[in-house]
Design a protein around this nucleic acid. Sequence first.
DNA 1: GTCTATATAATGATAGAC
DNA 2: GTCTATCATTATATAGAC
Lengths: 209, 209
Amino acid sequence: MEDLTARARIRNAALEQFATHGLKGTTIRGVAEAAGVSPGLVQHHFGSKQKLREVCDEHVMREIRRIKMDALDTGTGDPGYLSAVVRASVPIRRYLARTLVEGSPAAAKLFDESVEFTKEMLEAPPPGLSKPATTDLDAYAAAMTSIAFGVVALHEHLSRALGEDTLSAEGYPRLAKALMEIFTDNIMDPDLVGRNKEALDRMEGGGRA
Amino acid sequence: MEDLTARARIRNAALEQFATHGLKGTTIRGVAEAAGVSPGLVQHHFGSKQKLREVCDEHVMREIRRIKMDALDTGTGDPGYLSAVVRASVPIRRYLARTLVEGSPAAAKLFDESVEFTKEMLEAPPPGLSKPATTDLDAYAAAMTSIAFGVVALHEHLSRALGEDTLSAEGYPRLAKALMEIFTDNIMDPDLVGRNKEALDRMEGGGRA
DNA sequence: GTCTATATAATGATAGAC
DNA sequence: GTCTATCATTATATAGAC
């Protein structure tokens, strides 16, 4: 596991640094130190910090797509992107969490793809799933995607609140079961649902931000 | 609205800069320029960049708590933190989105408070709400909180996917209605739910991350 | 491929004039 | 209170030795 080329070690170190310190907070020097090489070598291999970040971006998004396609190919009944995000390695998910909020073209594309994929799945549901009762499937699919990516983006807070790492094989199932319970039990009275929808409609009309 | 003290204008400009560029990406010079003052004046009023950020943090969290208490006092049947986050001004929510992922003691405290508040609400549900059917109320409350904060954290992606700003009075109701539909319709067969839970239990046992 | 040395730019922070 | 000038630090990026 440690006999990687220097280039690969640098990229992995950069992945971790970008995930921890963000785009601006990550330095060539920091990456070099974490990878056990000189700052000059980082420049030699990747040219610039911006280029290094693009390589990391593409690697992360490609990895998530790869896992998604694997799951679809092996026919595990896997819902696709959502579980691909879940199955990705911890560094990949930590990187994704940061990048989703800092913003990057690659992360935006992945999110959009995921919304589109979810929408298609809801339009032609696989066995065990039925079509949602909504007049706004775009919003429905986007909201679902947001929930799946949101628990990754906020994993640090969730882990602290639950006392265990929700990116780990121990903590994640606990979180996923809770999410499934939220989706399956109906704790809101139909009456309350109706009133809330009316309130939202009023807001859509002439409310404030 | 524009006859604020220079100190307040600087803080508001800093709020916006931190939300847009993050902690490391924000510069004293950038804040000064946005506020229309000299960099020296920023230092004079706040001493250091770190101190400026702490002031912004505290201001944002205090504002969200204030809105929460207002909603509870006026007895609108408001669920508390969740809608407080929603009702906060756009700059406040943009700042919160960034800070939730970059991490700060103040944001962590707000999240933890929100989980605790949600848990207490679920233990003694107000009219219209019933107790959730879960054996893990902590995870249930944390997951609910994560959904509410998650749509704020990912508002940029949601807005792009939906073609309108989900932090605005037009875009938000659309998203909220979709979320309510997700909570109220049950698109998963009980059979599939059972199988998924079993799969999660197996993962909890001896799976990988 | 890998390193050291260095040029150049940007940033946080201080000092002092007005 | 507000500004300009300046310092010390740290960053990216380049050049060239090994």
